[in-house]
């Protein structure tokens, strides 16, 4: 658990350093994701990494974080108690942004994906 968490945090930290130094508008956790992906590639190709970096521990920590991701949004969501005034004053518009644009976004994205994957045939195992 400790090694896994350390590797994940290290990737995020390097992402933070990258975003700061390059001044690119890239979110540090997303850079961290790319770095960790690279780490997995390297790990499974070379045998010389120290044992603790080759252990399953890192995979287990990642699995736990991904499986429990929904929980992590609760504290930010509860922030609604702080902004009840401005939200109530604009309740219709805010609801439209939350519901209508999200439905639109899902529909447009899924349709585009399907349309384009018909031009570029899909691997069979992904079909239901």
């Amino acid at each position: 658990m400790v090694v896994g968490l350390a590797v994940v945090l290290l990737c995020q930290l390097l992402g933070e350093i990258f975003a700061y130094l390059t001044r690119l508008p890239v979110p540090a956790p997303v850079v961290g994701l790319v770095l960790l992906f690279g780490f997995f590639l390297v790990r499974d190709r070379w045998e010389w990494l120290p044992f603790s970096l080759r252990s399953e521990e890192i995979d287990k920590s990642c699995e736990t974080l991904v499986q429990q991701m929904a929980l992590l949004f609760v504290p930010a969501g509860v922030g609604i108690v702080q902004r009840l005034g401005i939200l109530e004053a604009n309740v219709l518009g805010v609801l439209a942004i939350i519901v209508v644009t999200t439905a639109f976004s899902i529909a447009v994205t899924a349709y585009t994906f399907r349309l384009v994957s018909r031009w570029f045939p899909a691997p069979t195992e992904s079909q239901e």
């Binding site: 956790p29 961290g32 990642c62 974080l65 991904v66």
Partner: peptide, 8 residues
């Protein structure tokens, strides 16, 4: 960290 972990 959970976003980073999506690498797996």
């Amino acid at each position: 960290p959970a976003t980073v972990a999506l690498a797996l």
